[in-house]
Simulated scan of single mutants.
Amino acid sequence: MSVRLLTVAQVAELLGTSVRFPRRLIEERRITFVKVGRHVRIPEPAVEAYIETHTVQPVVRRFGKVA
């Protein structure tokens, strides 16, 4: 099974951010990455896992009560 490795620019585009954000995630070791020589690549499943764990579900309100 081959895992697609994404560049920092590709990850930024997927997340809808600037390239600074994925670079900061890498620097703070908050996302899995692979060093290929002097290049940094992020496995696509790591980006999907990051999105999944940081997704906030909406609050369900009931009539007359505040959640």
Rank of each mutant, 00 (worst) to 15 (best):
R24Q: 09
Q57V: 15
Q10D: 11
V36Q: 14
M1S: 11
M1C: 04
V34D: 15
P22N: 08
T32N: 15
M1N: 04
V34I: 14
E13L: 06
L5Y: 04
P45C: 00
I31S: 11
V40H: 05
A46H: 00
E27S: 09
P58Q: 15
L5W: 05
K65E: 07
F63D: 08
T53I: 14
L14Q: 08
Y50V: 02
H54L: 03
I51Q: 03
A67Q: 08
A9R: 04
L6S: 01
K35I: 06
R29H: 08
E48W: 00
A67C: 07
V60Q: 10
Q10K: 10
A67F: 12
A67R: 09
H54Q: 01
H54C: 01
F33P: 07
G37M: 15
V59N: 08
E48Q: 02
E13M: 12
I42T: 00
F21S: 05
P43M: 03
V34T: 04
Y50F: 11
E52W: 14
V47Q: 01
I51Y: 00
F63Y: 10
I26T: 05
L15K: 00
V40F: 08
M1L: 15
S2F: 12
Q57D: 15
G37C: 02
L25Y: 09
V3N: 15
P22G: 12
P43Q: 02
R4F: 07
R62D: 03
V34F: 14
T17H: 06
V56Q: 10
L5N: 03
E27A: 04
G16F: 03
V40Y: 04
V19M: 12
